[in-house]
Design a protein around this nucleic acid. Structure first.
Lengths: 342, 342
DNA sequence: TTGTAGGCGTTATCAT
DNA sequence: ATGATAACGCCTACAA
């Protein structure tokens, strides 16, 4: 790689000390307007930009941020990356990714290890890893800056960005009932996740206020995978009678349900409505396309990045209020409309 | 964040100079066995690991690698990250991601800018960005280390990892014909991509040797998006007669074709076989699941990482031979089998 | 408003 | 085999 100009080169060319150049770089006010102009000009000409390693060495900062996640689906991650990058690049940070298996034994050590080795200034933790209290504890002990994305307030506001799953599933309940569905089943996620609880409870509660109560055999626990969706779907669809509608805890499982229904020669949506959660890339392209709930992942990620940088730079955290963003119901082909009922 | 021990702390405790500690760290031979033992012991106790910024400053290296790509929607990227990470983390490198729009005007500058700002030691470029000669030129001019992943040899062997698309599509042609398909159409990708040429030519050539020649109206150019798949599919399926089979340049388009067929009440695979390319996450989950071609993306990414590190560290590039990995035909539900013909 | 000196943690040079 | 000492590029006291 070509050698880039250093602050010394600039200083020499400008005929000033590097301290002055440093001042210009960092926007200090106490620099003669003319000298500043001149220096900025030279900086532009030379295409100079301060070396992050060196600056980091001096300032004890790496200008590196990390995102930690376990497989929430590529679609999700890409959106997160986009949202994060947009915010951080203009502030001079770079993004390092750290996938991990948060079920594994050494997972907490793995993550703290990553943070130390890579020397990131802070990390954004995505669900479902974000729900790990153990990890948050470890980070706190080690004084690591972090922001968690989740669907419940698990931590102090300045470390959380929250999506209001509960509200969204209530909308969904309302919609299903309005379309004439009565016998509704749900495939929830792993009990350990608070997102699971939020969605399940939110959904059941909303149904309850609409006069519908789910019997125990209509609620079954999946593990958020496509395979699990098939299995749980089959379990539900071999009951007699079969339910009118199935709400799965995420799109992967919902698509599994559609597959299960197909294998059992059950028509979606004519004989069965299916709803997912996430609005992942597949949702719109599936046949039938999937009715689901979309979280503004990009925006959430962007606020997470902002909060993280605020921590790192000790900024006046005016946006310290818990970020609570609304999720949105997207109606597609996998749910039967009232007008379709016979 | 907690302050980590430095090389000075270790040196002091060991009662030696930091130069000696440095020697131990870097595995220099000329250190007394006993001193080495002792120092290593202390290093372990203290959980010391050298600071990358500082080392990088001294050695002019950041221990950061980048991956550059467009098309964040693909499932491709996640696999690439996995493959790359596995190789690089054990060598002490970290991974930075850089999505970009390679159709945009300033795209080359954007990428070189990224390389300089982030100070990565090298980058892996994914298709289709990897096919940009302009970018490769720029990288060469700037002396940037890079490795390109593509389906043709566009560059010197030590900068390329190649998947043998041509071979794979020949297998596909063979299979389709063997299953009794005669009137075959193809939706190719943008002409500008060499992957497009590889697949189109490879496919047509293979068909030709099997005694089948495609007429011009059976070949149409898409842009590799789902939407384009729908449009091209519709175009093909409103011809009279409609083709037996459609081979789309990638899975996204193939899934668009299935949608188009569905909208036109054409049954897949009974009346139409559809084949994609990539074996993305959707392929197996689609209804019907998609017959497609799978490249060993993870492995390709891993070799790319190895080659990149070899460049950076001036390693004896024994694995300098062009990496040519085979793609593989995956038969699923979207193609009609011979036994199904009436 | 500007400059000098020293330090951040590591490796490289050259002695010893 | 080991150790001073000087880089590496930048920043922050402290002076002038």
């Amino acid at each position: 790689m070509k050698k880039r100009p250093t602050i010394n080169d600039i200083a020499q060319q400008a005929g000033v000390s590097k301290r002055t150049v440093s001042r210009v770089i960092n926007g200090a006010t106490n620099v003669n307007a003319k000298t500043r102009e001149n220096i900025q000009q030279i900086i532009r000409e030379q295409g100079f930009s301060p070396d992050k390693k060196a600056r980091g060495l001096a300032v004890r900062r790496s200008y590196l941020l990390g995102i930690i996640y376990d497989n929430p689906g590529t679609f999700y991650i890409d959106q997160v990356q986009e949202g994060v990058l947009q915010v951080i690049t203009e502030k001079g940070y770079e993004l390092i990714v750290h996938p991990c298996r948060y079920q594994d034994a050494g997972f907490v050590d793995n993550c703290t290890g990553f943070v130390h080795r890579s020397n990131v200034d802070g990390v954004i933790v995505l669900p479902p890893v974000s729900e790990s209290a153990a990890l948050a504890d470890a980070f706190n002990r080690h004084g690591v800056n972090y922001v968690r994305m989740a669907s419940v307030a698990l931590d102090e506001p300045y470390r959380m960005v929250i999506s209001d799953d509960r509200h969204a599933v209530a909308d969904l309940a309302l919609y299903l009932v309005a379309q004439g569905h009565k016998d509704i089943a749900v495939i929830s996620g792993p009990n350990a996740y608070s997102s699971t609880t939020e969605r399940l409870e939110g959904f059941c509660h909303a149904l309850h206020t609409l006069g519908i109560t789910l019997s125990a055999n209509r609620i079954i626990e999946g593990d958020n995978t496509y395979q699990s969706g098939i299995a749980c779907g089959r379990a539900l669809l071999t009951q007699d009678p079969i339910p009118d509608a199935i709400f799965a805890n995420n799109d992967d499982m919902a698509i599994g349900v559609i597959r299960a229904a197909h294998d059992l020669k059950i028509n979606v949506p004519q004989s069965l409505s299916v709803v997912g959660f996430d609005d992942n890339l597949m949702a719109a392209r599936m046949l039938p396309s999937l009715t689901t709930i979309r979280r503004p992942v990009r925006d959430m990620a962007a606020s997470a990045a902002q909060k993280l940088i605020a921590q790192i730079e000790n900024l006046p955290a005016d946006n310290i209020a818990t970020q609570l963003v609304k999720a949105q119901l997207i109606v597609r082909e996998s749910t039967r409309k009232k007008s379709d009922f016979s």
